[in-house]
Write a protein that binds this DNA or RNA. Structure first.
Length: 275
DNA sequence: TTGATTTGACCACC
DNA sequence: GGTGGTCAAATCAA
């Protein structure tokens, strides 16, 4: 159908993303140099606006997503295993697949499938209307043992350049991995690592989720796509891993050449509802 | 053998 | 009725 229209929107979105990338780099430099907080904040605001715009453009062609997150009816806490007693009545042990509500959801766009500090298990994949690529569904590996409600969806939104949109739902309650994610901003010289620690306090759990979403983790399905330290770019880690596995895999060809590697760690973060 | 992924089917929401 | 989200059996991989 309106393929050319979609292409146009894609180009527009890409422009915004590239701009966002530029802003992210500025922000990164600003942070690493201890620049003025106000200019960093300005950059951050612009960055958010840029990605918001890009997402908005993209979501126009994926209007399902927008409508999906804009409904606030359901109760994720009660969905799936949560209401086990009632669910036992349903036939075949299935049912009660409620749609998600917008709270506790956020998304990011990245040229790679960035790990986020948690182990995910893929439980489904579906073709979504008006999208070129299927959407993958992940849940926390510890969903069963620790009743961790966190899930995420990953969808490729563009193949050239490769862009993924990861949407996170719910917060991790599992204790397997760090509750106090730490971010290491690594610079050219190892000695100048900056460590930012976020104490795991519930009030800022959204922030924790944010930062953990920026950090490394495990996605069982795509082990090759873990981002690796690639030089002088900022490196976000979920925990102070002692040995950074040095050899940057040469098969890491997911990034288009013109896409600097910084950005694959500096993913944007965008709570739903802002657009 | 065990754990993860794939895939078809089921179910709720719009 | 169409669509998105989830389940679970079958299959695959380590």
């Amino acid at each position: 159908m309106e393929a050319s229209s979609f292409g146009h929107r894609k180009v527009k979105a890409m422009k915004e993303l590239v701009r966002g990338q530029d802003l992210a780099k500025r922000l990164q430099k600003s942070i690493s140099r201890g620049g003025s907080p106000s200019s960093a904040e300005d950059d951050a605001q612009e960055l958010v606006a840029s990605f918001t715009k890009a997402l908005s453009v993209l979501s126009h062609s994926e209007s399902d997503d927008g409508s999906q997150v804009s409904d606030g009816q359901n109760d994720p806490a009660a969905r799936s295993e949560g209401s086990s007693e009632e669910s036992s009545k349903r036939k075949d042990g299935r049912g009660r697949y409620k749609r998600r509500r917008p709270s506790d959801t956020w998304s990011k766009i990245s040229p790679t499938l960035v790990d986020d500090g948690h182990a995910w298990r893929k439980y489904g994949q579906k073709s979504i209307l008006n999208t070129d690529f299927p959407r993958s569904y992940y849940r926390c590996t510890h969903k069963v043992e620790q009743k961790c409600p966190a899930t995420k969806q990953v969808q490729m939104i563009s193949k050239d350049p490769l862009m993924y949109q990861s949407t996170y739902y719910g917060r991790h309650t599992c204790k397997n991995l760090l509750n106090s994610p730490q971010i290491i901003v690594e610079h050219e010289d190892e000695d100048s690592k900056k460590l930012v620690s976020f104490s795991g306090n519930a009030a800022s759990s959204q922030n924790n989720a944010f930062f953990s979403s920026l950090s490394f983790g495990l996605i069982k399905e795509e082990p090759r796509q873990e981002t690796v330290p690639g030089g002088d770019h900022a490196l976000f880690r979920s925990q102070p891993l002692p040995p950074p596995p040095p050899p940057p895999p040469s098969d890491c060809n997911f990034l288009p050449e013109y896409w600097p590697r910084e950005v694959d760690q500096l993913d944007d973060f965008m709570p739903f509802g802002s657009y």
